[in-house]
Amino acid sequence: MLKFFLSRLATFVPTFIGVTLISFAFIRVLPGDPIVVMAGERGVSAERYEELRSQYGFDQPLWVQFWEYFTGVLQGDLGESFITNRPVWDEFFSLFPATMELSIVAIIIATALGLPAGVIAAVNRGKFFDRALMSTALIGYSMPIFWWALLLIIVFSGNLGWTPVSGRIGLLYYFDDVTGFMLIDSLLSGQKGAFTSAVSHLILPSIVLATIPLAVIARQTRSAMLEVLSEDYIRTARAKGLSPGRVNGLHALRNAMIPVITVIGLSVGTLLAGAILTETIFSWPGIGKWMVDSIFRRDYPVVQGGLLMIAVIVMIVNLTVDLLYGLINPKIRKR
């Protein structure tokens, strides 16, 4: 198992270098000069422009700039934002918990509903539930997220008044960040109603964010289950007289989990990216909104640092998925 882990970890290195290069190059490919953008409508004199260029190191050849960035990254220094002059690292970690909270709740919703739905659909293949579920999943998968979010806001926040429209918590409450997770912090604060307020703020954005992964997980679980259900060992399990619940829920599902875990892992990446849209609609103070703003400001260090951090997190999730394969199916561990 340790050897398996190390071999997977080794693939981390080239991916990391590649991601650093891409995130560095990405923002520089975009037209627009950060110094001009920073100066705004008033403009900047030619001397001041040259001064700022050398101050930020833009007069150096690109490879020198990259080398300085890369060596900085290796030492844990992602640079400082042009706009706020705060370290990118600090900004990222002050905003990331909000995104992570939203993504975790969304993936929990998507898995908790999608997995059983896929299993039931596969077991009742071709029957009403299966057809209804797969049609719904297709609609969920192809629905424009911003439209879906607005629809939910109109119905549940506007017409019914059940949920707040935006933000993470009601204005009545104030407490210090402990973990950065509003659900936990509101509980720790001990203020009456704070936790309920945090939950009610989280409901709509997490449902919106969960919609696509939910559809993908349900469909993937169904197809993986269908494949596994025709395997010989399922017949053996039934020949032992085991109940359908045990045959489907243990013998089949355990084998069907490999592709399902894969899409759950991939969904986490999609969620971090998809969160940008959801965060914007619900004014959720996470990294999505921060990244979008930084791109418009040509805030090079924030964009490249933020991209890199998101990529590293996706890589860690994928590594975890790889390790889970080995736990679920011992045959994979051997390879």
């Binding site: 395997e231 010989d232 060992y233 017949r235 053996t236 399990a237 020949a239 013998h251 355990r254 084998n255 679920i328 199916n329 011992p330 045959k331």
Partner: peptide, 16 residues
Amino acid sequence: LAMIFQEPMSSLNPCF
């Protein structure tokens, strides 16, 4: 009433 099958390799669940 018990039964055994043709393909022993695929008739046992690889996960257990």
